[in-house]
């Protein structure tokens, strides 16, 4: 960051001195790519706000005009998605919290305390980041359906909870699954942060005879609060957006425990084809929580992505 600003005097100079075609071209390219990245989103939102006849008649990216404007599609999509929003949050919030806590602990044990063979253990975490989940899907389905049917065991308990149905018990194995497979990436994120922290504080505490637990609670935890934010936002987005585990463990879009991503590909489709007004409304609503998080915490999100690549 600081380097790019220290380079800026040169750019400012050239900015003032030669207002030339190159500068115009540069900004034209920037705007062109703004269009490239925004048009699919803008088109989706505009389509969500149009009546079906307006969708058929007007250009897809044109804003709805006069009679063509409607909120019916959004309202319908929202009514279809309400339950699944609750399901997504019931799953994603606890999973992310557990993920962040466990990963911070793991990264602490792998970075701030040194012991032999640490790197091997970390390498095993790191490989876990890159494993395609297809390679564990069959065992996953086997485990939660046949070997340890936790959802079935918890069904009576969930049936007793107001507002929930017995079927919601499937969210429990789903949450545990997300926690288990989310640990690697969160550990990598925390570890790169802990490695960047100055070692002197921890060393000083060690010389004073502070135990490993005390160092974690008193020094590392307070220092890593900003990183908790980064990892939480990153991982919440990942889990909320995830599809494959829900697909494997909850299966149908009609299931009471289905999260948003599971329902979305089925909304607004019938034998006559896809009702794009409804489908785009649903897509927009489904994306809204992550878009809000992203716009509010863009810097943290980008930071999470940068550290992910090592």
């Amino acid at each position: 960051m600081s380097q790019s600003t220290s380079r800026s005097p040169i750019d400012v100079e050239s900015l003032v001195e030669n207002f030339n075609y190159r500068r115009v071209g540069k900004y034209a390219l920037v705007v062109l790519f703004l269009g490239f990245f925004l048009v699919p989103l803008e088109t989706g939102i505009m389509t969500a706000l149009k009546t079906n006849s307006a969708i058929a008649r007007s250009l897809p990216f044109a804003p709805p005009a006069g009679e063509g404007f409607t909120l019916t599609n959004l309202e319908y999509a929202f009514s279809q998605l309400t339950n699944s929003f609750v399901n997504s949050l019931l799953m994603a919030v606890p999973a992310t919290l557990l993920n962040v806590l466990l990963a911070s602990m793991a990264a602490y044990g792998l970075t701030m305390v040194s012991w032999r063979g640490q790197l091997v253990v970390f390498a095993l975490f790191l490989v876990g980041v890159f494993v395609p989940y297809q390679a564990v899907l069959v065992p996953l389905a086997q485990f939660w359906n046949n070997m340890f049917p936790l959802a079935q065991m918890l069904e009576p308990l969930f049936a007793a909870i107001p507002f929930l149905q017995g079927g919601h018990s499937r969210l429990v194995p789903l949450t545990i699954t997300h926690v288990a497979y989310g640990i690697p990436i969160c550990t990598v994120l925390f570890r790169s942060y802990y490695k960047s922290l100055p070692n002197s504080l921890v060393e000083a505490a060690k010389i004073d005879g502070a135990s490993i637990t005390k160092i974690y609670r008193r020094i590392v935890l307070p220092l890593s609060l900003p990183m908790f934010g980064v990892v939480f936002i990153y991982q919440f987005t990942q889990i909320y957006n995830e599809f494959l585990f829900s697909f494997t463990l909850i299966t149908g879009a009609n299931h009471p425990a289905a999260p948003v991503t599971l329902i979305l590909p089925a909304i607004g489709s019938s034998t006559e084809g896809i009702d794009f007004g409804v489908r785009m409304s649903a897509a927009f609503l489904a994306a809204l929580p992550t878009i809000i998080l992203y716009v509010a915490f863009a810097e943290q999100f980008a930071k999470g992505l940068r550290t992910e690549s090592g």
Binding site: F33, L38, P40, Y240, N241, L264, P265, A286, I291
Partner: peptide, 22 residues
């Protein structure tokens, strides 16, 4: 940069719907 990176915050499920329409 925030706008260029925005699609990254979306789920595959959402982007698939957007591009199905595109």
């Amino acid at each position: 940069q925030t706008i260029y990176l925005l699609p990254m915050a979306l789920s595959f499920v959402v982007t698939a719907q957007l591009w199905l329409w595109m």
